[in-house]
């Protein structure tokens, strides 16, 4: 199954390149330059991992975008891209449900690593939900499957 990644960053040069590199890695990647565009994108399609720049001048602030995304797609894992000045906001972002944060300028390998972890967590989550759904379908109330 293809991992679907959405990258949100106002710096177009950065965005384009990172999208290309992730594509080359075999991830299905889409890039947008604002929080608003990101919200439109997640309406259209389901994303596994969203890379979100926390500091975007003008328009929607990264943390607000995070809140919106989490309310619309609670299962999508969000990795925050943060500068030095916004480490505190990132910590706040983690509390709001972000998976992790990466300090810019980020090493590409580190980024890929984080995406993989996020995807694994998400997939795990998906699995749990699927299992729960199956239980529901089979109408075995009270029985719990051992998951680990």
């Amino acid at each position: 199954m293809e991992i679907k990644v959405l990258v949100v960053d106002d710096e177009i040069d950065f965005l384009e390149t990172i999208v290309k590199r992730l594509e080359k890695k075999g991830l299905h990647t889409v890039g947008v330059t604002s929080g608003e565009d990101a919200l439109i994108k997640i309406q259209e399609k389901y994303y596994d991992v969203i890379l979100l720049d926390i500091k975007m001048p003008g328009g929607m602030d990264g943390l607000d975008a995070l809140k919106e995304i989490k309310s619309k797609q609670p299962l999508a894992e969000v990795i925050l891209l943060t500068g030095h000045g916004t480490v505190e906001s990132s910590v706040e972002g983690m509390r709001l449900g972000a998976f992790d944060y990466v300090l810019k300028p980020a090493k590409f390998e580190e980024l890929c690593e984080k995406i993989a972890q996020a995807y694994m967590k998400k997939a795990d989550q998906d699995n749990k939900i699927r299992k729960a759904n199956i239980q529901q379908l089979l109408r075995f109330p009270g029985r719990v499957f051992d998951q680990d």
Partner: peptide, 17 residues
């Protein structure tokens, strides 16, 4: 530092690409 960090990030990704 912030002003320089952004272009640095771009240069790094471009080089990576």
């Amino acid at each position: 530092a912030h002003e320089i960090n952004n272009p640095l990030g771009i240069i790094a990704t471009k080089a990576g690409w």
